[in-house]
């Protein structure tokens, strides 16, 4: 992917109109619920009749029960807090760094050229390659987690901000010049509203990356959080605990993703695809 303006190309990860435009009817809600119930019941049965060995997979009901019990313990909330701390601070740092950087780089051909090759080289580097460096520098401290989360979630936001600025309609910019609105007004009324949906998309992508890296740091490095507890549960053969924690992680990821999808929709309220959706 190049950094040049390319209107034909949708920004990465834009939610497909087909999926978001659909409204759920009663029968579909029913179908979705029965889908979940079907899988859970099938798993439960397969485990109860020993098709799936219990050593691998305790009955689903037990996992849920353990999950609910966990909600009453302080250790679970401590883990969750640690994971979310890494997620939120890292994502926040990445946003603060990437949004201005992306908008600056995207706003003019000179910085766009200067940084193109550097960005194109740095971005595909797997963030986890930097784990050893972070450990060498900071051990299992919070900095390690923050560094990894920030590095990984920096790129999607940077790219989305960059595309967003480049997608500003030149004619709208001309309107602001014709009416002598001034730079700040142009930025506030044209650049920001056009870029916001792109940044929102970047945030959604980065949010799930940030969570993944937070968990990764906990699993690989042993930084405190849900990931470390999953690893410890497995190592001590507390299988039910392990699954309950994995379940919690999945629900957390799903919840954060839903939250950011909402933010994205809000940022996109003026966009044609969304106006159609409202009709």
């Amino acid at each position: 992917m190049t950094l040049t303006t390319n209107t034909a190309r949708r920004p990465e990860g834009t939610p497909p109109a087909s999926r978001s435009r659909r409204r759920l009817g009663d029968s579909q809600v029913l179908l979705r619920c029965s889908g979940i119930a079907g899988v859970l019941v099938a798993l439960e049965l397969l485990i109860r009749i020993d098709v799936i060995p219990r050593a691998w997979f305790p009955p689903v009901s037990e996992i849920w029960w353990r999950f609910l019990q966990g909600l009453g313990t302080s250790s679970f909330w401590g883990d969750l807090g640690n994971t979310l701390l890494g997620w939120s601070v890292g994502l926040g740092l990445a946003t603060v760094l990437a949004v201005p950087a992306g908008m600056l780089i995207g706003s003019h051909p000179i910085p766009a050229s200067a940084f193109r090759a550097i960005i194109e080289f740095l971005r595909p580097i797997p963030s986890v390659a930097l784990i050893p460096l972070a450990v060498l520098l900071w051990g299992i401290d919070l900095q390690t987690k923050l560094f990894l989360v920030t590095f990984a979630s920096f790129w999607p936001i940077l790219f989305q901000a960059l595309y967003g600025v480049q997608s500003v309609d030149p004619e709208q910019m001309q309107v602001t010049r014709v009416y002598r609105l001034g730079r700040w007004a142009a930025f506030r009324h044209v650049v920001m509203p056009s870029t916001a949906p792109y940044i929102a998309t970047g945030l959604r992508i980065s949010s799930s990356i940030a969570l993944a890296l937070s968990i990764t740091a906990e699993i690989v490095v042993g930084a405190p959080g849900i990931g470390r507890s999953i690893m410890l549960a497995q190592a001590s053969s507390a299988t039910t605990d392990m699954y309950a924690l994995i379940l919690a992680t999945g629900l957390l990821g799903w919840g954060l993703n839903s939250l950011f999808l909402r933010i994205e929709k809000a940022a996109l309220h003026w966009h044609p695809s969304y106006r159609q959706e409202k009709r």
């Binding site: 990931g227 690893m231 994995i246």
Partner: peptide, 11 residues
């Protein structure tokens, strides 16, 4: 899809 892949490593 929302479940971070590394969380499944112990599994």
């Amino acid at each position: 899809r929302a479940l971070p892949g590394p969380a499944l490593i112990p599994f």
